[in-house]
Design a protein around this nucleic acid. Structure first.
Ligand SMILES: [Zn+2]
Ligand SMILES: [Zn+2]
Ligand SMILES: [Zn+2]
Ligand SMILES: [Zn+2]
Lengths: 137, 137
DNA sequence: CCTCTAAGTGTTATATTATTACATACGTGA
DNA sequence: TCACGTATGTAATAATATAACACTTAGAGG
């Protein structure tokens, strides 16, 4: 390490807007909506929807967050390596969202996809459930 | 036909708005957006977004159409029995959408779900692909 | 250091998607 | 007939997302 070449600086560094949006999602752990993010980060200097959407787009592209399509929300990736392949459970009662990191499920889906000759570039799987605490009550 | 009894009318009969929206989706076969539907059916008497959304909601509930979440569009169900469990491929290049009716895939997903002790009430799977004609060109 | 370029920023305005609220109509069953 | 559930029509508004344009910054390479 610490060799002469200075490359790959870019790949590690997020811009200020990207960073504060990522931090908020990280600290929240929950899915957040773009305009909620905007409101939350007004004090940090974010003024317009576009600033939020641009940061979100980039973070999605980098695989650091995911968009949950059916609720128009964004959540931190807790999986670190799912690229653009995502799977979530969403509680139909309380709205709680969990990223599925069960290897067997995601591998299984990949296998099914291969077996069925679907050439998938990426996928988004949203499973609606009744979560444990909602099941009890 | 035209017998005396009038029962079970309700279960078969859609209202006028529901019918014209369903017919449009049926004839199209493609995913359509709510406001496109509205524009298309102005001449049939639809005047407001709400009329469209109400019809769409009902048709989704009846399982006659599906919403494709990642493109905010609605498409006729070509499967007739998928209830609220849906699976689609979406071409990333041309946007073409196909409902997956491959029994092995959907059964496989169900099995995976069972094996992984996920109590799913329904699911929505969106697979992004490069479709055949886009692959060639 | 200088210049070029890709990426990001800030801002305003606008487009697109969806719901709230409220008054009215209509069919079914008690 | 009355109550009830469902659908309707309409206006207003909320929520989500993008277009357009001028400007800035950071890194690559000479
Ligand atoms: Zn992830
Ligand atoms: Zn729950
Ligand atoms: Zn279907
Ligand atoms: Zn295609």
């Amino acid at each position: 390490m610490s060799s002469t070449h200075t490359h790959s600086k870019k790949s590690q560094s997020l811009t200020k807007n990207q960073r504060i949006v990522l931090d908020l999602l990280q600290n929240s752990g929950e899915p957040l909506k773009a305009y909620f993010i905007l409101d939350s980060l007004k004090k940090e200097g974010l003024n317009s929807p576009l600033q939020v959407y641009r940061a979100l787009d980039k973070l999605v592209e980098l695989g650091k967050i995911h968009k949950i399509e059916s609720i128009n929300s964004f959540i931190i990736c807790n999986n670190s390596n799912c690229a653009s392949n995502t799977a979530f459970t969403i509680c139909e009662r309380c709205g709680k969202v969990k990223e599925i990191k069960n290897k067997y499920l995601t591998d299984g889906v990949s296998d099914l996809v291969k077996d069925n000759k679907l050439e998938i570039t990426r996928y988004n799987l949203e499973f609606y459930v009744l979560c444990k605490s909602c099941k009890i009550n």
